[in-house]
Structure formats: C-alpha cells, structure tokens
Design a binder for these strands. Structure first.
Lengths: 254, 254
DNA sequence: CGGTATCCCCCGCGATACTG
DNA sequence: CAGTATCGCGGGGGATACCG
C-alpha cells in the first residue's frame, strides 16, 4: 500500500481505495456479495492471494468486517462496516461518471459470458419466477462453444457450465455483445429481439415472461440517463435540425 | 494501465482513475493548477516521467486537454475537459468519505512544511492583504531547520525556501502538526493560539489580521462536518450523560 | 521550463503447493 | 472451501541524462 505523504482527505481515501481491484471488491460487497469464492467469481482474473490481501487490508482500515460463523460449516462472511457502507456514495459517483464518460461498446475481452450469467444470477426477481424449476439455456454467438445454463427456482438460482441434466425450458440464442448491452441498458430488450440479436425459444407464455424475471443491471438506469444526457448535449451543440425531435430510440447498431 | 475485463461503468472508471497519483492530479487540476511544474510541486515524490505519463493518459481518455500557447513563452497549460470537470463529484465523494473515515492525526511523514506553504499559497484572499508587500516567516517546530517564507503582495504570492531579502513583517512560530490541523479545520486557529501551538509575532494590527489572509483548506469544512458527524454518532451510541450537551468545542489535544 | 529516452531495480502479483 | 506460505518474474516507476 502506497502512501502519498499528504495530509489530505482525498489522498487518504485514495490510499485506501486506490489499490487495484479494491473498488471492485467494494462494489460487489455493496451489492450483497459476502463470501470469498463469490467475490472471486465476480472478479475473473484476480488471484486468491491477492483477494485475500485486499480483504485483509480493508479489514485493517475498518471498511470490512470478517465474521466467521463457527456453528454450521466453515462459512466466513465479509461484511461492510458502517464506514464501508458509506462508500456507496463514492462508488455511485464513479458509476455515474463512468456511465457518462468512460463507457461505450464493450471491448472484445470484456465479453465474458460466465461473468454475465453470474451477474444475472444476482439480479433475479425471485418472486416473478414460475412456481416450477426453470432451466434456461444460453447460446452465445461470437464466442466458441459458449453454451451455459441458468437453473431458476424460487429457492435458488445457479449458473451451470455443464448441462444440468433436467429438461431445458427456454433456449436463448443471442449475440453476446448485444446481450451485454441489453443487460447494461444501452439497448432495449425489445429492440434486440426485433433485430434478431436475441432469440428466445420456448412455449409462448414462458418466452413472453422471460425478460421480466430479471432486474437487469443495477447500473442500467444510470447508463440510460447518461446516454440521454450526452445525446442531449450533442443535439444542443449541433443546433438540431428538427424542432420537434423524435424521442431517441435505441436503434440496433449492426 | 490495467484493464479489468469487465463491461461495467464502475470498472471502466476505476481503470481510468485507479492509477497511482491520477486522482491527486485530478484533485489539483480541479482546484485550478494548470502547469506541469505546479502540478509537480503539489505532488512531492512524483517523478517528472510519471507525471508526464499520467497526463498523457488523461489526455488519451479525454479528461485533460493540453493547450500550448505559442505566443508568449513556451507555456503549456493542462486543463480539464468537460468530462474532467465532472470528476468533481467523484473527488468530492472521496473527500467526504476520507474526511469522515480515513482521517485523523497527521502521520509524521505527512508533515511536509513546504507542501503546506504551497497549499496556503493557492488559498490567499488576495484582496484582504495589506496594500504593501508582506513577508511572513514560518518557523516550524518538530522539523529541523524548517524556516520558510511567504511573500505576499496583491500581484503575486510566492513561497521562499531562502530568506527573500526584504524585512520580515510577521514571524509565525508553530508546531507543524498543529498548524496542519488548523489548515484542515480540525483545530481552530484561536484555540491553537491559546494553547501556544501557534505564535504570531508582528505589529498588533498585522498579527490580528494575519489569519484572515487565508481561506484555509478547501477541505476544512468537510473535515469539520465529519468530526461533528462522528461525534454525534458516538454521543448517540454512548447514550449521552447530559441532556443538554455543550456544543463540542475544538479543544487542544496536548 | 517542459518534457522525452534510457537504464535498471524492486516489489506487486501470479502460480503453485500446502493446511485447517 | 477458505485461505496461507513461498518462489520467481515482469513491468511500473525512480534516477539520470539529454533535448527543444
């Protein structure tokens, strides 16, 4: 951990949060991730050693509390302290800025289908699911052999890298980049359907209900707002050819 | 520059801002620093190479604009773009959090007297200065031979590491840590005077006016608010022994 | 002043093996 | 599963010299 040697609150905060991965760890803790391996799954590329280092540092500075439940199994929980919870404002400011100024098309190396499904798993409207178990198969184009499954019940949601064995109820075939953009609010689900970037094969009732099972990304609203914001500024600057301008549609960008 | 490989606005923002020094560079640009060497002076410990690297990166991502005025001298200005200016929210969130949770007594290695004077230089109420040039000598205790000067005119303010030659109008003798705490709003100037942590030797009129020449740290208000905030929570938790509690005074902490 | 080019060292980090 | 201990490397970054 580097020390800037400046007696300044911004420098102190940057010392604590500036280490690689630390802000993403906080982001995930803020959205309810509590276990070591869950954090690790949400941060592909981090090594176990490094995650442990970062978590220890966060404990030392009073942002994270480690709680070991000795009762049932060796479940160790990482929870944000009060100080950690108040980082919500920092992460939110980063989110708003990132959505407006650091965002655009996904880079190829950002198209990790497993991470996407992992994120989706944590944003299921459990109470909107059908009563019976549902297995959804995702067939992502643009990545070789990217076929994974989501097993949805009202008790539990799991990402399967192997066929779960049960019958598949819904088959989603999608362009991975487009599905990511839908996830993040840059593209509307309906538009993606219409442009054949997403295809849902299931009994009509299920296919129609499918998009409602997901809350989509927590960042989607900010991303949409940022797009409108920037479009607004661009239009304002360019002078605008039409006085009554059409509501900006999310057009497929093929 | 590290890439997290996550299509997420927070990760994208962290990629751009997470490099060492970058947030402090933005902090200084936000407060009006515009020249390479001025940035360097405000960031003791950064190498010229690294500062140049960081500034180039910030240009590449559209946060900073480099403007070379070819007219007069070879003055090169670094200015925040619109995107850069909107980082104000991020830095502000860090400031608020840092003031509340990452702050406390200064660490010994943070007691750089030159940096303090450099900061003071940029927060002078130029219009409150006397009409004639004023030379203030600072005699910081706790550091060997830490004697420096501030030369104040309504045209220009400069930090002198050598005696500027002119007569000294005000001699400030102070404990460096305490003066830093006054600078940052953790200690009131008057209390520090009373506790002999700061001593001002000058003609009465000048001595009395001296503290009003400075705007003190831009972070001071946040720091004060954070102290009250935390005290409030502490009192609320401890139950409070007195029903009418005295307004929390900033007592000298000797 | 306002940087770039070069060299070289150190430590942040990944990989691996091991433990409760 | 939830980590710790150890080793080895690569590149981030400091020091220095140089240029416009």
């Amino acid at each position: 951990m580097y020390q800037y040697g400046q007696y300044c609150p911004v420098a102190r905060a940057a010392e604590i949060l500036g280490d690689r991965w630390t802000l993403l760890i906080v982001r995930d803790l803020l959205t309810g991730t509590r276990y070591f391996n869950a954090l690790k799954r949400g941060l592909p590329g981090i090594s176990g050693t490094l995650l442990a280092d970062r978590l220890r540092r966060l404990q030392d500075v009073g942002v994270v509390e480690k709680r070991s439940e000795l009762k049932g199994r060796s479940t160790t929980e990482y929870l944000l302290t009060t100080a950690g919870s108040e980082l919500r404002d920092v992460v939110h400011a980063l989110l708003m800025w990132g959505a407006k100024w650091g965002f655009g098309e996904p880079r190829p190396e950002e198209l990790d289908p497993i991470l996407l499904l992992w994120w989706m798993r944590s944003r299921i409207h459990i109470d909107r699911l059908p009563a019976e178990r549902i297995v959804v198969e995702f067939d992502f184009r643009g990545v070789e052999n990217a076929v994974y499954w989501l097993m949805l019940t009202r008790k539990d949601v799991s990402v399967c890298l192997q066929h779960p064995g049960h019958d598949v109820d819904v088959v989603v075939t999608a362009d991975l980049a487009s599905f990511y953009e839908v996830w993040l609010g840059r593209l509307s689900y309906d538009d993606a359907l219409r442009a054949n970037q997403i295809n849902v094969d299931a009994l009509p009732a299920l296919a129609c209900d499918f998009p409602n099972w997901f809350a989509w990304s927590a960042a989607a609203e900010a991303v949409r707002a940022a797009m409108l914001d920037r479009d607004g500024e661009r239009l304002a600057v360019s002078g605008g050819g039409t006085e009554t301008c059409e509501p900006p549609l999310h057009l497929p960008n093929d």
